[in-house]
Design a protein around this nucleic acid. Structure first.
Length: 678
DNA sequence: CTAACATCTCTTTTT
DNA sequence: GAGATGTTAG
């Protein structure tokens, strides 16, 4: 039995309502995850629902992982086995892996990330003779992505305005989609779009998954876009046991097509649904909650809610004003240390939250300088590094020889004398003969205008890839074999050879080794692990629970650094909300584009409500941008926080230039700390 | 074809 | 100010 008596009445009502549609409007910190966890436990243990029949969908791998963990804690690992808790994208891939052949793709399809997408868009632009200088591939991709999220196929895309970008995007879209198909690749938008198509066009596929998932829960429902909405609607159509949880005040993904209307209209979509409101906040102090409420109430279009708490006021919010971004980092880290000693806390109790990922750098440097452990969440820095992408591209081509983006990356890395000219010739030939690029390389003898020496090089490369593809067909012992492969092609030597700075080269080599470590960790975890499986996890950025590095760092006591977007759904006792300035929060782009800044305000709301005990907000008077020091204005949201809740601190650290000054600063810091501690 | 050098652009947010 | 892209000489 699951003990539901620890839940408050509305929470309990939500957990007990298992049959038929249910809408849970859950304010920040109102115990939403707890409700979902208990609801799953209740389904499993009290209603005797088979774990196989339960599906919970989240937006991030982090959220999915956390939910899995909490369900396991509640009901035990064995009872939870078979239940699916995953992101929209992981779920889509799972469904596609089974039946994508019906849509004309092969089962070993690749998942293309942004840089691959850009590569294809550029190619598509060349094919329709678009001026690559005049048009920006990213802008086009953006439009195309918008259509895909709205489930508009290439033949139905029409320009809404007489906008040159829009017109070109209409031409490029079908070419882009054809190129993806030729590469046996799908992009992130396709994951959802193709899944929906599969479910719509193949009743037996739909039926299979409807029978499988009889009880469905969707977290952060306010962030679903049109295609995700349809995806869920299709799955839930048969049994109608759909429970969606969300908060319109925390909708922060409008920019990628999320439609708050989906949650606001749920009652209309599912007549007779039960609605439960969770308004008691268990997370934050009264002061923090009051600040959040005062900010968010400035948004016009929202469902009125009154979040309340009974935990008491707590400390005032600290507002720290720094001279520049460097000092901001110094002050934050200094305060962090101070709080930690004063309250005997661990590093894991602190988070530094920012609007843009680039803001993390100053804080990272300062934390490293002070020898404070930290984890940087998101930013997907690791897999975006050149050497990592190159190394992974080999694995991608081996796994899916049609993957041209990967093939093009590695054809001349390490340097093997096959330059652009040659590649262009082969590519042209492959287009003319409707033959995949790799196959064209194998038939390089038939291509005109390539010297004999060059042909031999191309053939050697072709043999390398096809040979490896053959070799890796056999599963098992992946990590060791990949290492062997990298050694064979001399990947490390190439890095040492081409990078003059030895320390940099070292780091890059370590990054490549990190891939192999991750793979070893993955293999350990999953019996019968395949290259495809590994690459899929990497593409979906679902790596944090198997990579060797993170396993070590998972239990590590460390300060968390992340963007406001990544922080949604999480909480920390002490939060530093940094860069509270105009043009950062709200971001310049959102102001320029004349969009309503409500979403920026919601972002601000999300940031404030992450804090449990104490919130520190910081801003700078100057900030370096493009290497220039610019004057900064405080965020407009600052005025919305009542003054009585805030205590202002001017910066007090002088810039230390010489080593002596640095030493003096350190002494000063310790003196102040001793004084403060008594 | 490669390496060295010059020029240009970029900073939302994520799966 | 970095990092990617483009240009030029060997």
């Amino acid at each position: 039995m699951i003990d539901l008596s620890t839940l408050n009445p509305p929470q309990r009502a939500a957990a007990e309502h298992t049959e038929g549609p249910l809408l849970v409007l859950a304010g920040a910190g109102s115990g939403k995850t707890r409700v979902i966890t208990y609801r799953i436990g209740h389904l499993l243990l009290d209603r005797k629902v088979k774990a196989d029949n339960i599906l919970a969908v989240t937006f991030t791998n982090k959220a999915a992982g956390e939910m899995k963990e909490r369900v396991r804690e509640l009901v035990g690992r064995g009872k939870a086995k078979g239940m699916v808790i995953s992101t929209f994208h992981s779920l889509g891939v799972r469904i596609l892996r089974r039946d994508i052949e019906r849509l004309g793709y092969k089962k070993n399809f690749s998942i293309y990330t942004t840089s691959d997408q850009i590569g294809l868009i550029r190619q598509a632009m060349r094919e329709v003779n678009a001026d690559g200088k005049k048009f920006d591939a990213e802008t086009l991709l953006w439009r195309i992505s918008g259509w895909k999220n709205g489930l508009i196929p290439p033949d139905r895309a029409v320009p809404r305005y007489n906008d040159p970008d829009e017109l070109l995007a209409c031409d490029v879209y079908p070419r882009y989609q054809a190129l993806l198909h030729a590469c046996n690749a799908i992009d992130f938008d396709d994951i959802i779009m193709l899944t929906v198509r599969l479910l719509q066009d193949y009743p037996e596929v739909l039926d299979h998954w409807q029978e499988r998932f009889r009880y469905i829960m969707v977290d952060e429902y306010q962030d679903t876009n049109a295609s995700q909405y349809l995806f869920i609607s299709l799955l839930a159509k048969k049994y109608r046991n759909l429970c969606v949880v969300g908060d319109d005040d925390q909708s922060i993904y409008g920019w990628r097509g999320a439609d708050v209307g989906n949650i606001l209209d749920f009652e209309r979509d599912y007549p007779g649904c039960r609605v439960v409101k969770l308004e008691q906040n268990y997370r934050s102090t009264g002061t923090i909650l009051e600040a959040a409420n005062q900010v968010i109430k400035n948004n016009a279009k929202r469902k009125e809610k009154r979040l309340w708490t009974d935990v008491g006021e707590g400390r005032p919010i600290d507002m720290v004003i720094a001279q520049d971004d460097e000092e901001e980092a110094t002050l934050v880290v200094e305060r962090l240390q101070m709080e930690r000693y004063q309250h005997n806390l661990s590093f894991g109790d602190f988070a530094i939250l920012y609007r843009t990922n680039s803001q993390s750098r100053a804080f990272e440097e300062q934390l490293r300088f002070e020898d404070i452990p930290y984890v940087l969440v998101g930013g997907m820095q690791f897999y975006e590094r050149k050497e990592v992408k190159d190394a992974l591209s080999y694995l991608k081509v081996i796994d899916n020889p049609l993957d041209e983006q990967a093939l093009l990356r590695v054809v001349n890395f390490p340097r093997r004398g096959i330059g652009d000219g040659t590649v262009v010739k082969i590519n042209q030939w492959s287009l003319e003969h409707q033959c995949p690029l790799l196959e064209a390389m194998g038939r390089v003898g038939e291509i005109e205008g390539i010297t004999e020496a060059l042909r031999e090089k191309v053939l050697a490369f072709h043999r390398l890839i096809t040979g490896a593809a053959e070799e890796f067909r056999r599963p098992g012992n992946l990590a060791a074999r990949v290492k062997g492969f990298y050694d064979r092609i001399g990947l490390e030597e190439e890095l040492y050879r081409t990078i003059e700075e030895p320390a940099t080269a070292r780091r890059k080599v370590e990054n490549v080794e990190q891939i192999i470590n991750s793979m070893a960790g993955y293999e350990e975890r999953i019996p019968g692990a395949t290259l495809s499986g590994f690459l899929e996890k990497v593409s979906l950025m679902d790596e944090d629970r198997f990579s060797g590095k993170d396993k070590k760092e998972h239990g590590k006591d460390a300060v968390t650094l992340m963007s406001l977007h990544s922080s949604k759904g999480l909480e920390f006792p002490f939060v530093f909300l940094v860069g509270f300035e105009e043009e950062i929060l709200p971001h310049k782009k959102s102001v320029e584009e004349g969009m309503s800044i409500d979403e920026e305000r919601r972002l601000c709301y999300v940031g404030i409500t992450r804090a449990r005990r104490h919130l520190t907000i910081t801003r700078c008077l100057h900030r370096k941008k493009y290497g220039k020091l610019l004057e900064r204005q405080p965020s407009r949201f600052l005025e919305e926080i009542p003054e009585r809740l805030v205590q202002v601190h001017e910066g007090m650290v002088k810039k230390a230039v010489t080593e002596d000054e640095q030493e003096a600063m350190a002494q000063d810091f310790f003196a102040r700390m001793r004084e403060k501690l008594g």
